[in-house]
Amino acid sequence: MPLRTAKPCRSKLCHQTTREKHGYCEEHADQAKSWTRGRAGRGRGGRPWRRLREQVMQRDRYLCQPCKRARLVTPATEVDHVIPEAEGGPTVASNLESTCHPCHQVKTQREALRARERDAGGPGGG
């Protein structure tokens, strides 16, 4: 198999070339280890979030909790914060509930409106 074409090292101000797939010369190869692709393991979407989400869905029996409070039976498709993260709500099971997509959209729109009103009412707002 032919060798890769030599390319400049990805490290700033390094003038060496490399044929490594990660793009760093031997001197800077340690920088390649911290390079990751995508969102896996960072924030929501990683394994801890999926486990917590499944735990909440099981606790709520896969039913939308806002619909249940309105005496409707609707399957849940999402898990949402009761107190939004933007308002200081923690990502713990006691602050999460299962929701259907329409309920989640309505709640998200209400939260966005509240945030816009809060921002507009601050110093320098209209």
Rank of each mutant, 00 (worst) to 15 (best):
D30V: 13
E26D: 15
R39K: 13
E20Q: 05
H81M: 05
A76V: 00
R37G: 13
A6T: 12
G126R: 11
G23T: 08
L96Q: 03
A115R: 07
R39Q: 12
H101M: 09
K21N: 09
H15D: 14
P8F: 03
D60T: 11
V92G: 13
P8K: 12
P8M: 03
D80Y: 09
E78S: 12
G121D: 04
G45C: 03
R37S: 15
A40Q: 06
L13E: 15
R44G: 09
P84R: 06
D119K: 14
D60A: 09
C25P: 07
R116N: 09
Q58N: 09
Q105I: 14
G124Q: 02
C9A: 01
T77R: 15
R61D: 12
P8D: 07
A86G: 14
G126H: 14
A29F: 13
G23I: 04
G124M: 03
Y62N: 10
K68G: 03
Q58E: 06
C14P: 01
C103F: 07
R42N: 13
K33D: 10
V79C: 05
G88I: 02
Q65H: 04
R116D: 00
Q109P: 02
R4A: 15
V106R: 13
E54Q: 14
E78C: 09
Q109I: 12
R42Q: 14
C100S: 15
P48Q: 07
T17S: 06
M1I: 02
P2I: 01
A86H: 06
C25G: 12
